[in-house]
């Protein structure tokens, strides 16, 4: 899992990877470490222990692991009760069953009741792949960021997901942690501490701001490389925390670049793009483009095929960036 950073003339940094790993395994590793660090950490799972990579925690701390069966509503309530008793519960199931299926339980028993529950959600977005649209939730960020008291995090790779898991274990309050299924390039520093709510500056540039979250950060890195070949200097921000959004990072970046593109594996409605647009519409309106799913459901296919078909490939980011740069030049 070594990452290398090479200095090249056209860009400040070059991100490469030597291996691909799924972000859910980063969660599993982080959960085990959080469990070792704090005896109050407990975990609950709704019949997806292997998929969520919670086996290691279960093996190490069997008395602190609760298999709830296929009953997600009960899982959220039990987690809230464990939090009342001073525990730090981590719930694990697919993102679809972590949000839409149990929205009212989260709203009343966790968010409104201010319970210290960490809702950990795997298999988010199109990159779930072949299981199809029933499981590919693309609305979860929107649902969760609407809830008062809820922190919403979507880290970009294995290393960052592990660090994020450790960070939310130390934070008091409800958190939604979103990650995914596929093996994905590991390109961030494994030792970089995760700071909730602090955007990660990936590249410094002056022509265009690109803000991405989750798997799309890697696609944005690749797009930035393409754009650099054409002489475009990209200011790339990894907005791993969608709520609370690092508004300062957004505003200071567009102050340099005067335009912004966002990229996310989520519906256009309710996601990162909307959150960034909200900040800029009030503070500093600039030309903007959004790379997201266009208000449709997904379908079966490989992750790579789906990202291309639904317009989330790195080439889609390049195209929309070029369009945005012409708009900026034309002053619209």
């Amino acid at each position: 899992m070594e990452t290398t950073e090479l200095q090249v003339s056209s860009m400040e940094k070059k991100y490469t990877y030597t291996e691909k790993k799924d972000t859910r395994s980063g969660f599993g590793a982080g959960l085990l470490e959080a469990g070792k660090a704090n005896p109050e950490v407990v975990a609950l799972c709704a019949d997806l222990t292997g998929s969520l990579k919670m086996d290691a925690f279960k093996k190490e701390f069997p008395e602190r692991f609760f298999q709830v069966g296929i009953a997600e509503a009960n899982m959220m309530g039990v987690a809230a009760g464990l939090a009342i008793g001073g525990k730090v519960p981590f719930t694990g199931t697919f993102a679809n069953f972590s949000t839409g299926r149990v929205y009212d339980q989260i709203r009343q028993s966790i968010a409104y009741s201010e319970k210290n529950v960490k809702i950990c959600a795997s298999h988010a977005g199109l990159t779930l792949g072949e299981d199809g649209a029933t499981h590919q939730i693309l609305e979860d960020i929107g649902m969760m960021r609407m809830l008062p008291n809820m922190v919403v995090i979507n880290p970009c790779d294995y290393n960052q997901t592990k660090q994020a898991t450790l960070a939310i274990a130390k934070y008091y309050g409800p958190v939604y942690l979103r990650f995914g299924r596929p093996a994905w390039p590991v390109f961030t520093d494994p030792n970089e501490e995760f700071v909730i709510g602090k955007a990660q500056q990936m590249l410094s540039g002056t022509d265009i701001t690109i803000i991405a979250c989750g798997h799309m950060v890697w696609n944005a890195v690749q797009a930035a490389e393409e754009l650099a070949k054409a002489g475009v200097s990209v200011d790339l921000i990894n907005m791993h925390t969608i709520k609370p959004l690092d508004a300062k990072a957004v505003i200071s970046s567009v102050a340099k670049t005067r335009c912004v593109l966002t990229a996310e594996e989520h519906q256009r409605n309710g996601g990162l793009g909307e959150a960034v647009a909200h900040v800029l519409a009030l503070a500093d309106p600039v030309p903007m483009e959004i790379v997201a799913v266009e208000d449709v459901f997904g379908e079966s296919g490989t992750p790579a095929e789906l990202l291309v078909k639904y317009g989330l490939d790195s080439s889609d980011i390049v195209k929309k960036a070029q369009k945005l740069l012409s708009r900026k030049t034309a002053g619209n």
Binding site: M75, M76, G77, G81, I84, G85, K87, P89, S109
Partner: peptide, 10 residues
């Protein structure tokens, strides 16, 4: 009941 169960487990 779910919340009470969680409290009982704690």
């Amino acid at each position: 009941m779910s919340v009470a169960l969680g409290a009982a487990l704690s």
